[in-house]
Design a protein around this nucleic acid. Structure first.
Length: 284
DNA sequence: CACCATGTTCCTTG
DNA sequence: CCAAGGAACATGGT
């Protein structure tokens, strides 16, 4: 369920649930998930430690824990990969089929479930190095954004997925931000004009902020075994209201919400891109 | 059976 | 050292 908005919502939900809770036992069901930590190494660090804070950096969850024996807080890094979910459930409930790691908190168990096992939960923090600015931060300026875009020969859609440029954008919101900015996903990054950079800078922020705002209103059930948590941009059928939030992603051949033209789907860097051929011609 | 899927990391090439 | 492209990772849905 990743991309910045989903991770942000998850962090906001987990923070009050985990704060002050003490880890009684660590169960690693899939060793790859904690790499390069070892099972015993992770257990020795976490057992007896208490959650102090949950925050987010890019698409990573950052858990800060206090240990009885250690002075400095322990940092635990989580990433959902493509299919990761994190939630609390009753200790008496059976773990899901693809539970990767579970933390015994007493009455509840913190579960990291991950069908495809692309996610991570580790004390190894190297992944936080070399990340670009947070999109909502002051460090993400139009000037630096434009300057970085001018250094690249990649298509702008592909470049937006580069977490060194700016963090948090994934395959869905890359298409959405470009659509709102009226920029063709195929334009070479270095040919983005100052005006386009300014517009794209704004639509990136808008698209992400709106998704967070909408996710905050959803009745997510992280304590239960719902299917409804997580992917709030994939509205299947039931609770309407958020299917329409996406303008182009996964809407191939559907009419453009602006002009009615058929939305097109193309492949860039082996990933799908959706855009309106009429609204995103990319002249200034 | 074939192809597709919200992401990152590793390897190769230039 | 860096930029860019592609494969790998692993499972399930259509």
């Amino acid at each position: 369920m990743p991309e910045l908005p989903e991770v942000e919502i998850l962090v906001q939900h987990l923070q009050p649930l985990l704060q002050t809770r003490t880890i009684r036992a660590v169960r690693v069901h899939r060793e790859k998930t904690i790499r390069p930590d070892s099972i015993r190494g992770l257990q020795s660090k976490l057992v007896g430690a208490s959650f102090q804070n949950v925050s987010r950096r890019a698409k990573f969850l950052v858990f800060s824990l206090a240990s009885a024996r250690k002075q400095n807080p322990i940092l635990l890094l989580g990433h959902l990969g493509m299919t990761g979910r994190m939630y609390l459930q009753s200790t008496s409930s059976p773990l899901p089929k693809h539970a990767a790691v579970s933390l015994d908190l007493g009455r509840h168990v913190f579960v990291f479930e991950d069908t495809r096992y692309f996610g991570r939960l580790t004390t190894h923090l190297a992944s936080l190095e070399n990340l670009g600015p947070e999109p909502m931060s002051d460090a993400f300026t139009v000037e630096s954004f434009h300057a970085d875009l001018r250094k690249s020969s990649q298509a702008i859609k592909v470049k937006l997925l580069d977490q060194k440029l700016v963090v948090g954008i994934g395959n869905i919101y890359a298409s959405e931000a470009l659509f709102r900015a009226g920029i063709s996903p195929r334009i070479m990054s270095r040919r983005i004009t100052r005006k386009q950079a300014q517009r794209l800078h704004q639509t990136i922020r808008d698209v992400l902020a709106e998704a967070i705002a909408m996710g905050s209103t959803l009745p997510l059930d992280f304590a239960g075994s719902k299917k409804r948590d997580g992917l709030f941009y994939y509205g299947s059928s039931a609770s309407s209201g958020y299917e329409e939030r996406l303008s182009v992603y996964d809407r191939e051949a559907a009419p453009c919400v602006n002009c009615g033209a058929a939305i097109r789907k193309i492949t860039q860097a082996a990933r799908s891109t959706y855009f309106c051929p009429d609204c995103q011609k990319s002249r200034v």
